[in-house]
Structures are given as structure tokens and as C-alpha cells.
Design a protein around this nucleic acid. Sequence first.
DNA 1: TGAAACAGTTCGATAGGTGAACTATATCAC
DNA 2: GTGATATAGTTCACCTATCGAACTGTTTCA
Lengths: 153, 153
Amino acid sequence: MEKQLLKQMIDRFETSTFTVNRILHACIRELMPENLTADQHSILRYIRERGLCTSSELADFFFVGKSSITAIVKRLADKNLIQRILDDKDRRVIYLSLTAEGAELVETMQEKIAELLTKFINHFDEQEAHTFIETYEKLARILIEEEGGKGRE
Amino acid sequence: MEKQLLKQMIDRFETSTFTVNRILHACIRELMPENLTADQHSILRYIRERGLCTSSELADFFFVGKSSITAIVKRLADKNLIQRILDDKDRRVIYLSLTAEGAELVETMQEKIAELLTKFINHFDEQEAHTFIETYEKLARILIEEEGGKGRE
DNA sequence: TGAAACAGTTCGATAGGTGAACTATATCAC
DNA sequence: GTGATATAGTTCACCTATCGAACTGTTTCA
């Protein structure tokens, strides 16, 4: 790609990303029930996706230290949204999973978020949305790859 | 769009957004110089773009309370990256602008970020990148509109 | 001229992040 | 086997960002 064009592309990408994130994040924060933060919700979602997971896994995935996870997990467990399950094969390990209450909460949140996104996606025709998402997914794959490469160093 | 398809689109969009943000945010955090957070950098960028701006404007733009801005502005001014300029027409108002040091810092950060993004954008051919960004910008416009609509209520 | 609006600050609380020191368990080399 | 090392998770002290309520000072306007 030509240098001048590339620079322009980057600038436009940066601006759009920034705006979309800023507003989407604000919208999602508004959807959150009393006493749940967006970060906490992300953790719940990840646990739901995985079924069972450990604190170390969360720390790696979210690129934060284990001590941050300890704190968040404590808050979520205090609210009875997740539970700790001891591994009796390796007694250092503590698995985390959603409680029934936690699972239900994530479910309703997903519906709310889907509703919100539907409003926006409806502005696009099927072809446009499809093309966009294909590229977005490709970008996500590239990032995962790059990130994985860095981790191996 | 068909209901089933829409649901699938939303799911894919959500997953991609989440991944891209998670990794990009981590990358950018790594680029930050010692003693500057990503949030602080966003504020600096906004001020640079505007030349002059007020705390209230920042609070509106970033969807946070004015007291949060007071705190961030204090930290940035302490580091000598921004300066306060009193308005002598309306003595309630305090304009913020970058210091020379702040401007330079934002400049070097921009270069670093552009370098990072170049790595990723280079995986796409010109047409694909262009189409993607067009749609992304459209999404940003839609979000701004919706958000503006909400504000007026 | 007095009430209301507005710009910004202060304060106390909470959430999230760091890194270092710590406990407890598991693994591995010898 | 046993001792060094690695791993899982917690605790601690400290920082940043956020909130909302109460506050100061200034402007506007009925």
C-alpha cells in the first residue's frame, strides 16, 4: 500500500475505533444492572464460555496480574455469581464456574446487549454487514496470532 | 435481515469486537511511556485535536463525571503535559491546552501507535481495508447519532 | 437584585490495576 | 527419596479512575 494512503487509513481506523469503543462502552455500562461493572461482566462471560476456568487462565486472557483477578473473583463470589471448585488432583488449583444465579444474569445481559447491537446492525444491509464482519474476524485472528507470537519470545 | 442470521451476526460482531479491543488495548498500554496511562493519553489526544478545551467538554465527550476529569487534569498538569488558561470573559471557565512537552509526547505516541497499526493493516489489501474502514466509519456515525438522540431526551 | 444555572473542586467510597512477598502444593533432577 | 524449582493463588501497600454529593465562585436572567 502506498505510504500516504496507509497513513490516511490508519488515521481513519484509529478515529473510528476510538469513537465506536467510547460510545459502545458507555452504552453497555448503562445496560449493566446495579452492582455489576462491565469488567465483572466480561469475566462472567468468559467463565460461561469456558464452563470451568482458573484464575491464572483469566489473568492470561485479560492480560492482567493474578492479584487483580483474585480481587474481582472475590467480589463476584461475594455476590454469589460464581463459585470456587477445588481440584482434588492438584490441590493448588481452584476452578471457577457460574452459579445458577450468575448464569441467569449473564443470559439476561446477553439479551440486552443483543438488543442494543440489533439497533445498530439494522442500519446495514446483509451484504455490507457480512463483509464487514468477515474482515473484523480476520483482524481479530491476526491480532491473536501476533499476540501469541509475542508471548513465545 | 432474517432473525437467525441477525443473531449469528451479532454474536460474531461481539466476539470480534471483544477480541480486537482486548488485544489492541493491551498493545497500546505497552507502548505507553512510564508514568502515562492509556486514559491519560486519550485525554491528551483529545486536547491536541481541539487545541483548547474545558473540563466540562471532556466530561461530556468521555461520558464521565466532571470530578473524574478534575483528577486526571490534575495529574497531567502535575506532569507538565497540559496547562490551564483562564478565560477572562467568563471567569468560571478554565481552558486546557497541551504544553510543548505534552505536544511532543502525543506526537511520539502517535508515531508509535501508527507503527503498531501498520503491522496489522499490512495484512489487508487496499480494497479490503478501504471497504472495512468505510463501514466502520458508518458505524461510528450511527453511534454518534444514536448517542446524540439520547442526550436530547 | 435575588434565584437559578453553570464551571469547576473537594471529599469519601469503590473498582481495578501493579509488583513484591507470601503459602501451599506439585514436579523434576539427581 | 529429597531438595531445588515451578506453579496456583492470596495478601499487602500503593496508584488511577470513577461516582455522587456537597461545595465555591461566577454568570445569567426574570
